[in-house]
Amino acid sequence: MIAADVVYLRPDTAEEAVDAWRRHAGARYLAGGTEIATAARRTAAFDLRACIDVKRIPEANVHEICGGCLRLGAALTLSDVAEGDSFPLLNAVLRGIADRTVRNRLTLGGNLAGLLPYREAALPLLLADATVLTVAPGADDRPPVRQERPLRAIFDKRLVLAPGELVLSFCVPLEAPEWPWSHYRRTRTGEVDYPLVTVAMVHDGAGIRFAVSGAHPYPFRSDAVDARLTEWFATRGSEEEIPPPSAAQSEPDSPTAQGRGGLKSNTEPQARGGLEPELEAIVAALGPLRADARASLEYRGALLKNMIRAGLEDLA
C-alpha cells in the first residue's frame, strides 16, 4: 500500500499526458510501475503526489517497421519486446532483466528512465545508434514539443530529459539487428539478480561497438573504446592471440547463445602474451570500476576482461 494520497491520471494521448504533468506539480509518469509502486510504498521520501499512466497512449505501444526503422514503443513491456524476433541482441539483453512476471510489466522506457543504475535495455539501443521520440511541455503555455533525437545525445549515464518530457518510442535503424552480436551477463546470486557486469558488443561491418553496464555506476558506450577495440580486432594477428572461450564460458544451457551466465566459473584473467596489457588498457580506458558488497573492483575487472575477450572471439 502506498501511504501518500495520490492523484491518478490516465491520458489518451501524449499531449494530454504532458498537459497533465503541467497541471499537477510533482507528477510522475507511470508505465509498468514496478519501480514507482515499490519505491513509493517503501518510503515517504519518494515523492509521489500524482501519477500519469501512459500505458494506453497508442504511440507508446507501437512495435512496427516503418520508414526504414524498427520503432519500439516506450510502453511495450520487456516481455512483449523479447518475445519478438525483430532485434535478437535486444531480446537477449531484455531476457536477463528481472524475472518473467516483472518483465510482463516493466517497460522499455521505464528500464531506461528508471532510478536503478543498470538500465541494461540501453545497451543494444546505444549500440544501434537508435533515436528517441519524446514529447515535452511547450514553454509559456505553448503547445507540446515533439523531438526525435539520437539516444546517445540524451543518454549521459541516464536519460537526460527536460522537466515533464515523456519518452514515446525508440527507432532502431533496420540494419542494426542484422549485425553479428555478443552478450555476456554475470550476476552474483543467480540468474534473477542485478548484473555485476553486462557487456554487449556488435560488429557493424566497419568496426566494433561496445557497451557495458554494472561494471561502473552507470551504463555507457564510448567512442574511444570502440575505436580501440576496432583497431585491436583488425590487427589482432594470429587466431591464437584471442584464446577461444573455455567450456565454462560457453556453457550450452545459457539462455542465449552468448548469453548470461556464460562466464559461470572461470573468472580469472586468461589473457596470454600481449593480450593482458591491452585488455588492462581497455578496462582502464573505460573508467573507474565499481566496488561494493556484491563484487570487488578486481573481480569486476576480471569479469570485464574475460567478457571482452569472449565477445571479440564471438564476433571473429
Partner: peptide, 27 residues
C-alpha cells in the same frame, strides 16, 4: 515481500502472470 521478489502475490492480468504488489488497482 511486497517488493516484487517472491512472487507470492502473483495473479493473471489478461492471462499474463504479474506481481499484484507492484500494480495499482486503478491500473
Amino acid at each position: 515481500c511486497e517488493n516484487g521478489d517472491c512472487g507470492a502475490c502473483t495473479v493473471l492480468l489478461d492471462g499474463k502472470p504479474v506481481k499484484s504488489c507492484m500494480i495499482l488497482a486503478v491500473e
